[in-house]
Design a protein around this nucleic acid. Structure first.
Length: 894
DNA sequence: CTGGTGCATGAGAGG
DNA sequence: CTCTCATGCACCAGG
């Protein structure tokens, strides 16, 4: 059962009926639309919680006071109001029902577990609630707020402003509106999110805007009185002006002189359709909100303080409109495609005519869109909704006019793609070039009514597509793009915050940004590239740096010593262990001390240099100093000395950090993995002064290091992956090797004569495998070949760089010693080089020699899994895992 | 060889 | 798990 009532303030009739055309609305049954029997207008259902107690006559009664609740009959005054968080509240006794959000014990038993409680516990846990000390009952001290709301609440008008206020950190946070299904109401918001929600609520929040808006504003004003949320009032107003801009909002927003409306006149159709649209879009919007609550991190405190600096002009000018829900297959358009447009642009497009412009959608140009291919991929939903229907892949020619009035001819078509379609605009190159658009710029599509002519605008971006898309996606992911538009202090920072993207309006549109863009928190976004903020990278480095202090070789495991270029390396077959942290100090005499703190008595004990204490260490473990092998023994350090020790240690740390901080920005902008690897290297370097210096024989490698060099057993020794090993790494290496080989074979066959091919090229995969197999046999028979090869690899290198990126080294070697930077491209290039040239370059006379190398390199290949499977090594040395695998493959190939 | 065209692929987002 | 879409790539035609 659901209550249906007309939202028309002047009507108040009962709402019933099914899908119909009424007043220009196309309503489908799936829209939950109903028609008012009285005025004929259609509205979405207002479904009260179905779990109400309902008496025989259909009335719902309050279980506490017995008064009848609003049963949905429009003839009765609503005695019940919806609560955010779900449920309802009896207006007579203020008792709540149906809410799982409020842990009100007296009501708890009656609480109804509404599955549709969108903003109930699913969004805010009880912990959250307690944390913010929500108060469900109208507080006396907030009576002004309630009065303000009540003043705007017109029962006859059925404006559903909620009466349940909440105290959040001293702020009276008021659910601003309810909408749509009655038991779907908004949740409480934290002070940090108030403004955000205001924007959202301000969207189509109330069922009768004329009544609700004043309420909204009053609420906002009340909150506005708190400094922390200053200007949110304006923010909310601005959002309202934008989101409701299509409607005749002018009279409602008189105090907001900047809030001009769309050029679209407030015809009945527009008003009605937008009303409908408002309701419908809100559903999706509400969904967005829900998602946001689930997925996105909280806004940082202070975000909205910055908002106060947002230029009001900007706020008023930019329109962000949810596109019209019309056309075929109009799915809910992703917010990223919602058009944003300014009065200026509207004016420019429409000129002085009486035409109305309907913004349809926009799209940020991708690299391929703006490339020379001349194809602009259209979002499917947009294409199907707003462009002419096409049934054949060839599509239709389409004329689209730009803002300057020039008409462009495109081919609107599609490709079948995975049982779906991929829509493209072909022939956009001239237009792209004419408008000097590039990847990252945004094109907007609108329609001029009633002509139905398509027009396109554009918005230039100052940043690359990467950051821009990220920013847009990020912003949109945060919800309604209106937030972006009016966002805080973003504008002035825009030009200087290129790293995280921003839009700078160079033409018709105003800057659109969101403050959070500046914080690149969408690691692993659409961009397929891991982005990491500078601070994040630094943090990562420091974290790793600190972690270095705890990484120690496994206890009771004797390392084998490998000598490479006169440097001794300790090799461990087991992964590192977490060890107890020690502090190293330098004596005045120049000697070094290592200090450790007892876990039991917290006294500091001196232990010999080079000792690797276990993660748990107590005085009893102090076998080096029997006098202090008990917790009863006095502390060797005075408080002053201890202070000095700690200071000394902190200074060491500071130096390390300074060292890291001085690294180039580019280093900090490495990808996540590279940053990890870099941090690892730096961490090791920096840690030399502490434990590292005394626990490893090599200046760079630390005990327990499981990088490929460190875990690598002496040549020909240690566990290897069998040739038939099917672990991921082995399979990857094999696959890539085959790919490289096949590619090389193909190119070679094209370039060389058939005789040479017969001699040099490997004609089939079987042959490759046979050869690999035979070479492995060689390796097994004489492991020294492996050693020789590895040795050659090392010796040939001008400078041995035994940091924790050995794979990169291998990669570089694969490419060539002169290669300044190894990359997959280099690998491919190396792989694609003619075999002859390679042989020549490496002074190899024949394949016989290279066979040995292949055999030798296979050691590298098969050792890779050791590294990858060592788990703890992943952060340390696995940064270039893929590249390393490819390098191994390249080595294998070579 | 170059550029255009059509399709395939896979990462990422959404359901 | 499905869908979207950015992009890669094979194929083809024309110069």
């Amino acid at each position: 059962m659901s209550a249906k009532r007309c939202m028309n303030a002047s009507c108040g009739g009962a709402v019933a009926g099914e899908a119909n055309w009424r007043k220009g609305w196309l309503l489908k049954s799936g829209d939950n639309a109903t028609l008012c029997d009285k005025c004929g207008l259609a509205y979405e259902q207002l479904a009260f919680c179905e779990n109400f107690h309902q008496n025989e006559s259909g009335w719902r009664e309050c279980a506490f006071c017995g008064k009848r609740l609003h049963c949905g009959c429009i003839a009765s005054k609503p005695l019940l109001d919806l609560l955010d968080g779900g449920g309802v509240q009896c207006l007579s006794c203020s008792k709540t029902y149906g809410s799982t959000f409020f842990p009100n014990d007296s009501v708890q038993d009656l609480l109804l577990q509404s599955s549709q409680n969108v903003y109930g516990p699913s969004a805010w846990s009880y912990a959250e609630e307690e944390r913010y000390n929500f108060d469900i009952s109208p507080a006396n001290e907030s009576s002004d707020v309630l009065t303000a709301i009540s003043g705007s609440y017109d029962e006859n008008a059925r404006c559903n402003i909620l009466h349940c206020g909440t105290e959040v950190n001293g702020y009276r946070i008021l659910p601003l509106a309810k909408i749509e299904n009655g038991n779907r109401s908004f949740g409480h918001v934290k002070s940090e999110q108030v403004a955000l929600h205001m924007e959202e609520f301000g969207f189509p929040g109330c069922t009768d805007q004329e009544q609700s808006l004043p309420g909204l504003l009053q609420v906002s004003k009340r909150i506005d009185s708190n400094n922390a949320l200053k200007d949110n009032f304006n923010l909310a107003k601005a959002c309202l002006s934008m989101t409701l801009g299509v409607q005749n909002m002018g009279n409602l927003m008189e105090d907001n002189s900047k809030a001009s409306t769309w050029k679209i006149t407030s015809s009945q159709h527009c008003a009605v359709s937008d009303m409908r649209e408002k309701n419908k879009s809100f559903s999706a919007f509400q969904h967005d909100l829900r998602d946001r609550h689930h997925r996105l991190p909280r806004l940082p405190k202070g975000s909205f303080c910055a908002a106060s600096d947002a230029p009001r002009e900007l706020i008023a000018q930019v329109r962000i409109a949810r596109p019209p829900a019309e056309g075929r297959g109009r799915n809910q358009l992703l917010p990223r495609y919602w058009p944003r447009i300014t009065d200026q642009e509207l004016q420019q497009i429409t000129g002085d005519s009486n035409s109305t412009i309907v913004p349809l959608f926009e799209k940020v140009l991708s690299a391929s869109d703006a490339g020379r291919i001349g194809r602009l991929v259209l979002p499917k939903a947009c294409a199907e909704a707003y462009f002419p229907p096409i049934s054949q892949p060839e599509g239709l020619p389409l004329k689209i006019q730009d803002a300057k009035g020039k008409e462009w001819h495109f081919q609107f078509r599609f490709w079948p793609n995975n049982n779906s379609r991929m829509y493209v605009l072909e022939g956009v190159t001239p237009c792209i070039q004419s408008l000097q658009l590039q990847a990252g710029d945004t094109v907007t599509f609108s329609r001029i009514d009633p002509e139905g002519k398509l027009v396109m605008g554009y918005r230039k971006a100052t940043n690359n597509v990467q950051s821009l898309q990220d920013s847009q996606i990020s912003a949109m992911a945060n919800g309604f793009p209106g937030c972006e538009t009016v966002s805080p202090g973003v504008n002035e920072n825009l030009s200087t915050t290129d790293k995280h993207g921003g839009l700078l309006n160079e033409g018709l549109l105003q800057p659109l940004l969101i403050q959070e863009k500046r914080r690149s928190r969408n690691i692993g976004s659409r961009t397929k590239r891991l982005l990491m903020d500078t601070e994040d990278a630094m943090e990562l480095k420091f974290t790793w740096l600190e972690a270095q202090d705890f990484l120690l070789p496994p206890p009771k495991v004797k390392p084998s010593i490998v000598i490479i270029e006169d440097q001794e390396f300790e090799e461990y077959e087991d992964p590192p262990v977490l060890a107890k942290r020690t502090f190293n100090t330098v004596q005045v005499s120049g000697g070094h001390d290592q200090w450790i703190q007892c876990d039991d008595c917290f006294r500091w004990r001196r232990i010999p240099l080079g000792v690797l204490p276990p993660s748990k260490w107590a005085c009893a473990d102090n076998t080096w100093d029997p006098k202090r092998s008990s917790c009863a023994a006095p502390d060797e350090l005075t408080s002053t000395e201890l202070h000095s020790l700690l200071r000394q240690h902190s200074e060491m740390k500071r130096k390390q950090i300074t060292t890291i901080s001085s690294q180039s920005l580019s280093d900090l902008e490495l990808t996540n993995l590279k940053a990890l690897a870099g941090a690892a290297g730096l961490g090791e370097t920096g840690s030399e002064a502490t434990t590292a210096a005394v626990t490893t024989r090599h200046p760079r490698h630390r005990p327990g290091c499981t990088c490929i060099v460190c875990i690598q057993p002496p040549s020909g020794k240690g566990p290897k992956h069998s040739p038939s090993c099917s672990c991921n790494v082995c399979m990857t290496v094999k696959r890539r090797f085959k790919t490289l080989m096949m590619r090389k074979k193909k190119r070679q066959s094209e370039r060389e004569d058939s005789e040479a091919n017969k001699k040099l090229a490997w004609s089939s995969r079987d042959e490759i495998e046979d050869m690999t197999s035979s070479l492995k046999t060689i390796q097994q028979n004489d492991p020294r070949i492996v050693g020789e090869f590895m040795k050659n690899l090392v010796i040939n290198k001008a400078h041995i760089d035994l940091n924790c990126q050995p794979r990169r080294d291998a990669e570089q070697q694969a490419v060539g010693p002169s290669s300044p930077r190894a990359s997959m491209m280099n690998l491919l290039q190396a792989a694609s080089r003619p075999l002859e040239s390679y042989l020549k370059q490496n002074k190899l006379a024949s394949l016989t020699v290279s066979e040995q190398q292949v055999s030798s390199s296979s050691v590298t290949v098969h050792q890779a899994p050791i590294e990858s499977e060592s788990g703890g090594d992943e952060e340390h040395c696995g940064s270039d895992k893929i590249a390393g695998d490819a390098a191994a493959a390249a080595l294998l190939y070579e």
